[in-house]
Amino acid sequence: MWGGRTGALPRVLGWWPAGLLGRRPLSCNAPSLAGSSSPQCWNCGGPGGPIREDGFFCPQCRALQPPDPTRDHFSLMDCKRSFNVDTAKLQHRFQQLQRLVHPDFFGQRSQTEKDFSEKHSTLVNDAYKTLLAPLSRGLYLVS
């Protein structure tokens, strides 16, 4: 629907990460989503895997990489680990991440990338919902 392998909508609106199509990167505190000491891309086997500023895509083949389920909600949402959260910034980050990983943008990709997209999207939704509500944010902080 969006035209091509990488999707025309993200390219046109300028939210695609740097290195993929020359757009600006998202800020992200976590260095990797691979979850191993020497990450490799599942698709091309290239060295370095998803160690990039955005942490979601292989820098060589642009394949979506598996999410790191141990990643903290605050680092995923690029927020300071604190009870006080800027909800406008949180919402903006949520929208940025969903534009990158939402399953609707992976309809023409491999089944593996579709599965990773669903997992990433679920993690982003969970992090957003948890950090948005003060009670769940507080409980998350003390857990």
Results as ranks from 00 to 15, higher is better:
residue 97 L to C: 05
residue 17 P to H: 14
residue 4 G to A: 06
residue 33 L to W: 01
residue 108 Q to D: 14
residue 88 A to T: 15
residue 110 S to F: 09
residue 130 T to F: 00
residue 70 T to D: 06
residue 112 T to D: 05
residue 32 S to R: 02
residue 137 R to E: 11
residue 86 D to W: 13
residue 18 A to L: 03
residue 16 W to F: 01
residue 40 Q to W: 02
residue 25 P to Q: 10
residue 24 R to V: 12
residue 129 K to E: 07
residue 116 F to H: 15
residue 36 S to F: 00
residue 83 F to L: 01
residue 12 V to N: 09
residue 103 P to K: 04
residue 122 T to V: 07
residue 48 G to E: 10
residue 106 F to M: 00
residue 101 V to H: 03
residue 108 Q to C: 11
residue 135 L to Y: 06
residue 76 L to F: 10
residue 137 R to P: 13
residue 82 S to W: 12
residue 59 P to V: 03
residue 44 C to M: 11
residue 71 R to M: 07
residue 134 P to K: 03
residue 88 A to W: 03
residue 27 S to F: 12
residue 95 Q to L: 04
residue 109 R to S: 14
residue 75 S to I: 13
residue 43 N to L: 03
residue 129 K to A: 08
residue 117 S to Q: 10
residue 80 K to H: 15
residue 98 Q to T: 13
residue 90 L to F: 07
residue 80 K to P: 02
residue 77 M to N: 10
residue 80 K to G: 09
residue 138 G to W: 02
residue 27 S to Q: 10
residue 139 L to C: 04
residue 39 P to R: 02
residue 48 G to I: 13
residue 91 Q to P: 00
residue 88 A to H: 08
residue 48 G to P: 12
residue 59 P to S: 08
residue 85 V to I: 15
residue 37 S to I: 05
residue 67 P to W: 09
residue 87 T to W: 00
residue 23 R to Y: 03
residue 7 G to A: 06
residue 49 G to Y: 06
residue 83 F to V: 07
residue 10 P to G: 15
residue 142 V to L: 02
residue 17 P to S: 14
residue 62 R to K: 14
residue 67 P to F: 12
residue 108 Q to F: 14
